[in-house]
Nucleic acid binder design. Structure first.
Lengths: 196, 196
DNA sequence: AACGCTAAGGAGACAGTCTCCGTTTGTCAA
DNA sequence: TTGACAAACGGAGACTGTCTCCTTAGCGTT
């Protein structure tokens, strides 16, 4: 035992190469055809057999989770930036939700498996979502404490509605301004209240 | 010519019977398995060949449109009731949106083809959606005129967000209270504003 | 009763998912 | 080096679902 964990062997070189190649190709393919595209086609584009693809990523969700893991950095960076700027809690929450919404638009059709991951809690995507809900809850609680967010609003609902907004975006002639518009609507609601 | 429109023949008795039977069975099947279920299975359950089903309803959307047409009465009745009660425009809008949200939950997965119908405007569902958007716009404009809805909110966005809410509902452990909660969020937003 | 034409049925082409198993290949110890 | 072994590969093929095409059945009319 030369320092590596006993019982766990390093993956073979070709396996690692194939895995990377699949991810690379899938990223491109999903970007073009949406996350519901043909997996066999991904395998073909990567120059591997279907069996190889399914061994590395047993389900579509596993593949998706790996792709999102690669993008996690980007969201994390935004998170840091938001925390650093920290003007008021409401602005921070709004910016975080906008970042989330953009994240969920990374691939066409992405919101669907994310929603799925929240209902049946045995998906490789579940953990990611749970984490982001927790983060959302942090921002939300701060804003509520500050008095700039209404009580009774729950982080999970908020997260779901942001996902839903991303889902809706692909209908709205796909312009990013309508995404922003709907997020504003989520913040302020359609009603003009004098509030209590 | 005995009063019937010339050039258009009455459908044959068996054709009509089959069509009705398919609708009846599809209603039940979709209610159980969602709108993405197997059409061949619907045909089998109805005791007809696949060809018969596809002749009557060339696409899944056609079948869906026919099913929704049968339910139109229900929504129309609610619409009348809302108009009759007419307390204030804001309440009316909220009740209308709630009715819409419930309507879009009639079958599991229904929001997806509805959203689709809005992006590519050549679907048998497009007309239905457009009509409901117009209705929404009526309520919205009244509320805006009354001063109880914010300016700048667009009916189409509102309709889409209601659809999105129905889409989100199926994740939220499917309890109807969370649907109501999200609709409230849509009305008031998460922010606690003193408004201008 | 016979005939013409609408509609039914279902076989089959096609596309996608996913598994299984014979074959290849990287790795490590001798 | 070489050989042995496990790890990984590839792709044929079973299965499911969509949708079309063409033959057959039978409705409605004369």
């Amino acid at each position: 035992m030369s320092g590596t964990t006993p019982g766990i062997r390093a993956p073979r070189a070709d396996a690692r190469r194939n895995r990377d190649r699949i991810l690379e190709v899938a990223e491109q393919y999903f970007a073009e055809h949406g996350v519901a595209g043909s997996l066999d086609q991904v395998a073909k584009n990567a120059g591997v057999g279907a069996g190889t693809l399914y061994r590395h990523f047993p389900t579509r969700e596993d593949l998706l989770a790996a792709l999102l893991a690669a993008r996690e950095d980007h969201l994390t960076q935004q998170l840091e930036a938001i925390r650093a700027d920290a003007t008021d809690a409401a602005t921070a929450l709004h910016r975080w939700l906008a970042a989330l919404a953009e994240w969920a638009c990374a691939f066409d059709g992405l919101p669907d498996p994310l929603r799925e991951a929240l209902s049946e809690n045995v998906s490789p995507l579940t953990l990611t979502c749970q984490g982001y809900i927790t983060t959302t809850d942090g921002f939300l609680a701060a804003a509520q404490h500050e008095g700039s967010a209404r009580k009774g609003v729950r982080a999970r609902d908020l997260f779901l509605l942001v996902l839903a907004t991303s889902w809706a975006r692909s209908a709205a002639m796909a312009d990013d301004s309508s995404l922003a518009g709907m997020l504003d609507l989520l913040r302020s609601g359609w009603a003009r209240t004098t509030d209590k």
